[in-house]
Simulated assay, not measured.
Amino acid sequence: MRGTPREVISAPHPLLSAEAAAVDPADPGVTAAAADLLATLRRTPSATGLAAPQIGLSLRLIAFDARLHPRSRSWAGELVVANPRLVKASHWDHGREGCTSIRGLTADVLRATRITVHGHLPGSGEPVTIEADAFEARCIQHQLDHLDGLLFLGRVSGALSLHRRLHSCDA
């Protein structure tokens, strides 16, 4: 299914601070939302991931594609995952993050560098397990936070961790 790119909303929009609703991955409306999310990601060159709340949909859907990021090691593919949940996290490290919904700022955020996520593929509902490391793990965790209404600034330990955005790399 071909999706339609949507506008990425910016903080302090209320959807960005609300918990997203679980979805039925086989529902045609969810499949259409997943296609829109992926189309929006493809149209946003600085982004490596997006969550449905960022395009105005309070749904537990994330899309990501970290293959072109210079700090990527793993690559699960260009994926949309419904109802993703983190089941394993290890090897914690600080790294720079930005967000398409918060322009002009990046921050040093502590995240696991190795993760396992379970979820379902929109459309078929087929279960999927993603094992990611390095930047891809960071990107996925960033998107998972969006589903829980948490922006990366909520994970910043202090003002010295904030930076003005100097490049277009986005988690």
Rank of each mutant, 00 (worst) to 15 (best):
A20S: 11
A22N: 00
T4G: 00
V87L: 14
S157W: 14
E78H: 04
L147F: 09
A51W: 08
H94M: 09
M1T: 01
T40A: 15
R2W: 03
R138G: 06
S90R: 13
R165Y: 05
A20C: 11
P45R: 04
N83H: 05
E7G: 08
G56Y: 08
K88F: 15
S10N: 12
P28T: 02
R2D: 11
A47V: 00
R71F: 01
S168F: 05
L86M: 10
L147I: 02
A137F: 13
H118Y: 02
S157L: 12
A112Y: 09
D93P: 02
L57I: 06
V80P: 00
A34L: 03
R67Y: 04
P14D: 02
T48S: 13
L121W: 00
R96H: 11
A34Y: 01
V156N: 05
V109A: 10
P84G: 10
H91W: 14
R43C: 12
R96V: 13
Q143D: 02
A112H: 06
V109F: 12
L68H: 02
G149A: 07
F64Q: 11
A82I: 01
G104Q: 11
T106C: 15
D93M: 12
A18L: 07
I115K: 08
T40C: 13
A134Y: 07
G56H: 14
R111M: 04
A52I: 00
E97N: 15
I9W: 09
S72Y: 06
S46K: 11
E19P: 01
R111P: 03
R71P: 01
R73I: 06
T113F: 05
H167Y: 12
V156Q: 10
D24P: 09
P122D: 08
L153Q: 12
A107W: 12
H13D: 15
T4Y: 03
A66E: 00
R73K: 14
R71H: 15
G3Q: 10
T100N: 09
A18I: 01
G119S: 03
T48E: 14
C99N: 07
Q143M: 13
G49I: 03
L150K: 15
P28A: 06
S46V: 04
E97G: 10
T113H: 10
G123S: 10
P5F: 11
L151R: 14
A34R: 03
G77L: 08
R67V: 04
A22P: 01
A134E: 12
E136G: 11
R164D: 07
P70K: 09
P14S: 09
